[in-house]
């Protein structure tokens, strides 16, 4: 990891990542809140009720973003897993591990909101529809990743095994989706779902886009925060981590950590010159 001229590689050093996240996250929270407030205002006070579904359709404003985030985060998880397996960049495993709980939560929330949307519009909380079923399986994939990572005593090995699982899962997601859809179409039981409805009103679309932005930014912020904690905990013995925990990580400490010449737990007398 000696690519000091390539800025991307800079953040593979946990110390640099930590500082970047520390600078980024304070902006992300208000941005997410702003988007959410604007989106909720548009969604509840500007967008008119749907002529068929009445006000129940407003669940869409959180259902679509959570469903999206679930899938997107799984792809990201697999991508970080692949990076970790190929280049053994520790930071990639930290990121993958930080993504998993948020991905699982988003997938769960998309199932929950989907059920509550389905109840008034289709008359049932749950159908074994292609999308619902494959989302449920996606949730299991997230849980499997987390369980495998947690079950291994050796963090490095556990991370690599879990990364491999994430990749196999990602290859399988389309196969699962198509097979489930194929299965569902052949069984043509309840044909309640017509996703391509009439085109959305502009205010609805605006509300939806704002909410999607809010969820993206929220997910970014929370994942970065979790990754920070994970990075600190893994590097607990290093100078930079202890300085960072005390809130006074200096530039030199960071650079020393990035080049990898920091000793295992040197004395910390030098700190305090922020």
């Amino acid at each position: 990891m000696t690519g000091r001229s390539i800025p991307w590689l800079k953040f593979t050093a946990p110390a640099n990542f930590y500082t970047l996240a520390q600078r980024l996250v304070p902006w992300l929270w208000p941005a997410a809140a702003l988007c959410a407030v604007a989106g909720l205002y548009m969604g509840f006070f500007v967008a008119p009720p749907d002529h068929q579904q009445g006000d129940a359709y407003r669940i869409l404003f959180i259902h679509v973003p959570t469903a999206w985030m679930g899938m997107l985060l799984y792809l990201l998880l697999a991508a970080y897993g692949a990076i970790f397996l190929v280049w053994r960049i520790k930071m990639a495993d930290i990121m993958a591990r930080a993504i998993a709980p948020t991905g699982a939560l988003m997938t769960f929330l998309s199932l929950w909101t989907g059920a509550l949307w389905g109840a008034p519009t289709w008359g049932t909380f749950w159908v074994w529809d292609a999308r619902l079923t494959s989302t449920l399986i996606l949730l299991f994939l997230f849980l499997g990743y987390m369980a495998l990572h947690a079950a291994s005593d050796d963090r490095e090995k556990g991370g690599r095994a879990a990364s491999l699982l994430a990749i196999i899962g990602a290859v399988n997601v389309p196969i699962i989706y198509f097979s489930v859809e194929w299965w569902y179409n052949l069984h043509q039981g309840v044909s309640v779902m017509r996703s391509d409805g009439p085109s959305m009103a502009d205010s609805m679309l605006a509300a939806l886009l704002l909410m999607i932005a809010a969820f993206w930014i929220y997910a970014g912020a929370i994942v970065l925060r979790r990754a920070q904690a994970e990075a600190l905990s893994r590097e607990a013995r290093t100078e930079w981590a202890q300085a960072a925990a005390a809130g006074r990580l200096t530039r030199e400490q960071r650079e020393r950590a990035a080049v990898g010449i920091e000793g295992n737990r040197p004395p910390l007398e030098s700190g305090g010159q922020t």
Binding site: D55, A56, I59, I62, L105, L109, L116, A119, R225
Partner: peptide, 29 residues
């Protein structure tokens, strides 16, 4: 909510609860 209060607030409430809980857990960690 035009008669759909239970569904709409149930969905938004669970999302709020989930995000809040996640935030608290991460902050504590």
């Amino acid at each position: 909510m035009g008669g759909y209060a239970l569904y709409v607030w149930g969905a938004f409430g669970m999302v709020a609860l989930g995000l809040l809980l996640e935030g608290i857990l991460v902050a504590r960690r």
